[in-house]
Nucleic acid binder design. Structure first.
Lengths: 166, 166
DNA sequence: AGCAGTATCTGCATCTGTGCAGATAAATTT
DNA sequence: AAATTTATCTGCACAGATGCAGATACTGCT
């Protein structure tokens, strides 16, 4: 029977939790030498196992040209590699480099450690519940991401830059 | 009694969970028309309630000059406002604008909704446990962030730009 | 009052990410 | 085999974020 006050409290708790996770992610990305779009793309690639350049372009919302450069950067930084698709030699499959994944894990390790400490305060049954939540929350967040991107805010104001509107 | 296999599984679950939350955050930031550093700064400001320009500079790791511009952008976008510090009139206090926070909440609402759906699958006791976790995990993530930033990867390669190394 | 220290802002230069449009290579269709 | 369509890459140009150094405004100390 949550009172309004409790509900508001939950609201705040959840917001602060999201912010904290988000800040951690951004700090991690920066520590890994990755900018937002690179971090985003690498997450996608890791999550999917591998993606073609075109798929990556549509998932990130970038043009294919920009995506080429994005992959260049990720490749140069040692996070992914390009492999030819044997089925269709026009295609370029982008897949994570194990070594790069390791570096990401390293960046995430402080979070892992601190959370492990928190988890240690719970009983095994409670921990199981939390992991069950993680398992279920991940797809939920992905669905939320989809939803947000669909209502796609047209990237910044962009001033409609009616180039020559004198 | 976690077997090694379980441990590996937990590893993956947690990783995917973090990725999902992270991607959601990035999508949200973009939908809000904010770039990484702006999103980061706004999170900090919101979390702290308010910050001075200088504090924001040191927390973000930006120079004071860049921070001025950052605040300009956030202000222009309607997320924060500058107020004079009555104690020290050199200082500029940056605080969130309620209306702006509302817009952020709106952006987060899909996540909130999807997670609410997940939470609805649990009993009230279980939900209480999960919120307890949120409450404890937030500071843990913040500590992790601190830790990551301290070991501060010097922003991208930057060629060490030893300014005057002739 | 004068002086040193501090907080923020501005001009200038740079660097990087991105879109756009055309180029190239490969698959598919006729 | 020729034409069309698809997938990725490259040249060019632009916008925007950031560092640096100097300017400005204010505080606190002597």
């Amino acid at each position: 029977m949550a009172t309004p006050a409790d509900a508001a409290d939950e609201h705040v708790v959840f917001r602060q939790y999201l912010d904290a996770v988000g800040l951690q992610g951004l700090a991690g990305a920066e520590a890994a030498g990755l900018h937002t779009s690179e971090w985003y793309a690498l997450s996608l690639i890791t999550l999917e196992g591998s993606l073609t350049s075109g798929e990556l372009a549509s998932r990130t919302g970038l043009t294919t040209g920009a995506t080429t450069r994005l992959i260049d950067r990720l490749e140069r930084a040692g996070y992914v590699r390009r492999v030819a698709d044997p089925k269709d030699r026009r295609r370029v499959i982008v897949e994570p480099v194990p070594d790069g994944l390791g570096r990401i894990e390293e960046v995430l390790s402080p979070a892992r450690r601190h959370i492990a400490e928190v988890l240690a305060r719970y009983t095994p049954e409670q921990r199981a519940l939390l992991f069950d939540y993680f398992r279920q929350a991940a797809p939920a967040f992905r669905a939320a991401t989809e939803e947000i991107r669909k209502s796609a805010a047209p990237r910044r104001s962009r001033t409609t830059h009616a180039k020559g509107d004198s």
